[in-house]
Design a protein around this nucleic acid. Structure first.
Lengths: 207, 207
DNA sequence: AATACTGTACCGGCTGGACGGTACAGTCAG
DNA sequence: CTGACTGTACCGTCCAGCCGGTACAGTATT
């Protein structure tokens, strides 16, 4: 679980393919080639295509979970902590390099076998409970989380998500609804002024 | 464009398959069988699989658009009309028989060729503009729309969407944010009391 | 009125290619 | 010697798209 192993490289290659070429191109051969490995080697690590996709989904789930936990730990005010953390983690991915590649596993699962997304579904339900019971008016907290999901979905599906100043205003308003400070930029060096904003639609997902 | 033609039957069959068996089962043969037609006949109407999926997407777009327009026409108060209509149309599908089958086209498009969803993307962008410029505080209107999308996505992906009383409370709060009356049940016969609530996750989408 | 022709709707078998998965012999580091 | 691979050949299946039909309604020709 420390430095990137072959295992990780293969997973990363799979994500790259989905993002760049679309789910339809996620074949065992393509992944092997992308990772500079052989098909045999790939199947040595992941016994089947489904196993590969499951691993992608789980990778995303743990990554998001970690981002959530970190964001929450950095937020001292108890009421609305989870909700704000959820918002931050969905609206701006942890690792900028990753971009919104995180969801590639979900996409792949939905395309070939929705049941593979089950672990994510469970996680999601748990997060939801946390949000609902966060010391805020229940409906408000849920609305913040749902709006975060809406934003995330737009990115995922390549729909035009609000960007730039508009996005920033929406995020600020959501943070406010979640009982957060209006100036959450305290720990941000502001070296990257519009860093909160995502450029455009993914522009990924071609065929 | 009047009574259901063969064309419509084929499209409906395709939607049924995606909903019942999952996107992975959407093959030309399966659609033909489901519609009680032959593969040749199917290909006579839709020159390719992509053409079929495009038609599914467009069908959904026009259906949603119609529902939106109708819902808006029935809402006399100018400020926030679009936003409320958008909320109502996403949160409860027009035709109950359809269920949330509407999105099957999107699912199919994302699975095989994301570019096929482009028409929907355009529509979506247009709707967004309408919402943003609806006489409400921009951020609030967008949040309502995004939350509606979040709800819709949960249904689409089979994630546990808020249901029952909780869903009703959230919807009420969203309607309030959109400047609507708190009792929008005026034209509802209430013969189906919990009709607003969707039972569970789609439970569709198997392999 | 009979014949010939045309366009539309639809059928169903076939093929070629892609892809998941298997098998296996070989390589190389520790 | 073992465990982590590589490289390649191969199999079976699935599936999109093609194509050569059929049925039939309407229309023109004689």
């Amino acid at each position: 679980m420390s430095r990137p192993t072959r295992h990780d490289h293969l997973l990363a290659a799979a994500e790259r393919i989905v993002r760049r070429d679309g789910v339809g191109r996620l074949t065992l051969d393509a992944v092997a080639v992308e990772a500079g490995a052989s098909k045999g080697g790939l199947l040595y690590h992941f016994a089947s295509r489904d196993a590969l996709i499951t691993a992608m989904v789980e990778r995303h789930a743990t990554a998001f979970s970690a981002s959530l936990e970190a964001s929450m730990a950095a937020d001292p005010a108890p009421p609305g902590r989870w909700t704000r953390a959820y918002l931050r983690s969905s609206a701006s991915p942890a690792d900028p390099g990753d971009g919104d590649a995180a969801a590639t596993g979900l996409l792949a699962a939905m395309a070939s076998n929705p049941a593979l997304a089950d672990p994510l579904r469970e996680q999601y339900a748990a997060w939801r409970e946390r949000v609902a019971d966060d010391g805020l008016p229940e409906a408000d907290a849920m609305i913040v989380a749902l709006a975060a999901d809406g934003l995330w979905m737009a990115d995922l599906l390549g729909f035009a998500a609000p960007a730039g100043a508009q996005r920033r205003r929406i995020l600020a308003r959501l943070l406010e609804m979640a009982g957060g400070s209006d100036h959450p930029d305290h720990s941000r060096p502001s070296a990257a002024p519009a860093a909160t904003t995502r450029a455009e639609a993914p522009a990924s997902l071609r065929r």
